[in-house]
Design a binder for these strands. Structure first.
Lengths: 210, 210
DNA sequence: CTTTTATAGTAACAAAGGTTACATATTTAC
DNA sequence: GTAAATATGTAACCTTTGTTACTATAAAAG
């Protein structure tokens, strides 16, 4: 466990902090599709991502979903951070996009470390900064791109975090993530295929990004 | 100056910190419409809002604008925060929505205080939390609301930060903030007027929110 | 006072996205 | 193997939003 910690976070934290994380943190193996956080949950521990990827979603009152972004190795969920430190409910849903390894750190320690370790403070502030940037990018995507561009970006991002040009997903799932209808997605996917940007198969899509 | 500081930030910070802010901070009076931050600017000092309101905008590569939110008294711009602490360029534009008073605090001090004052650390983290929530609300608005609902929300928000049910704005300006066209806004405004939600006049709109 | 500019109203049309309906193919359950 | 469930393709149509064009009026500039 300590080895993995050093491998993924050694460049960020001093040995003493790594040792502390190792002592109080809990390692978890999460299977693909597992719901890590639900909207409204009170968060009592913060996840540090060791490997894999997590999909962060927003939902409105009618149950309509919208993907915000993926988080990857070396990241933490600043939303969770925000909730922990503010003692407030989660405003987002988190689902394991792939099989994922993470370390859960209790909130109490997080706060203690803020005063104790400069590197931890830097990490927390940097995480906020990264998440803010991702939220702004999400806004750009929703506000400034048309649905066909959003769809292609989604496919590319998904291929990236899955480390594979073939992604396993149905049209219906894509429609839910992008907050539109299945018919719209099928229509646009077909156009993308005609334009040689992707290849369509049942339950999977191959992204051909040139 | 110290009096105003105590009045607006006394409940947050201890006297020692207030005194420090007073010593190193610069008070500024900003007129309505003044551009405080441009996209790409490096930020060397952080604004603490004493009175007034600031409009935060995003822009894409084609120069299309989009309002994110307003910030009000007691807030700071966490984007600025983010840029200061991360030593990166601003990703947003900030325009004074009303005449505004603020205190500019140099970045160097901000970082020093993070280790020195627990209340400052709390304030910084709380600011990040607030801004994150506002960005999520902006996303909800763009993603889940239709243009007529977005427009009405915009008018209500603008009335709120201006402390007046009559807001001084042209259809063209609204169209720019909501990233749509003037004709669309004129059309929807007319419908809102027919439905007794607003009254239209040249250069101003009265919001009748019941 | 006259010209120019800014603001607003509105019609007509185009484009994008959303809905309904139905067909077909593949997989799963029994 | 057969029935049911899931996944995809596609046409037809509707709604929302965006565009172009033209009008009228008020304000500002000369």
């Amino acid at each position: 466990m300590l080895e993995e910690l050093q491998q993924h976070y050694g460049y960020l934290f001093e040995d003493e902090l790594l040792q502390e994380i190792n002592n109080v943190g809990t390692f978890k193996d999460i299977p693909e599709g597992f719901k890590l956080i639900e909207i409204g949950d009170y968060i009592k521990s913060m996840p540090l991502l060791v490997s894999g990827a997590i999909k962060i979603l927003r939902e409105d009152d009618d149950g309509d979903e919208l993907i915000l972004y993926f988080i990857e190795q070396g990241d933490t969920c600043a939303m969770t951070l925000s909730c922990c430190l503010g003692n407030s409910k989660s405003e987002i849903r988190a689902i394991a996009e792939t099989d994922t390894k993470l370390i859960m750190v209790p909130v109490s320690k997080m706060e203690e470390w803020l005063g104790k370790y400069k590197t931890w403070q830097q990490f927390v502030l940097q995480s906020y900064h990264n998440r803010m940037s991702e939220l702004l990018e999400a806004i750009d995507t929703i506000a400034f791109l048309k649905m066909d561009e959003r769809l292609f970006k989604y496919l590319k991002d998904k291929a990236m975090v899955n480390h594979s040009e073939v992604i396993h997903v149905t049209h219906q799932e894509i429609a839910r993530d992008l907050h539109t209808s299945r018919v719209v997605i099928s229509r646009l996917l077909k156009t993308l295929e005609i334009n040689k940007k992707i290849e369509l198969h049942r339950n999977n899509i191959k992204v051909i990004d040139l």
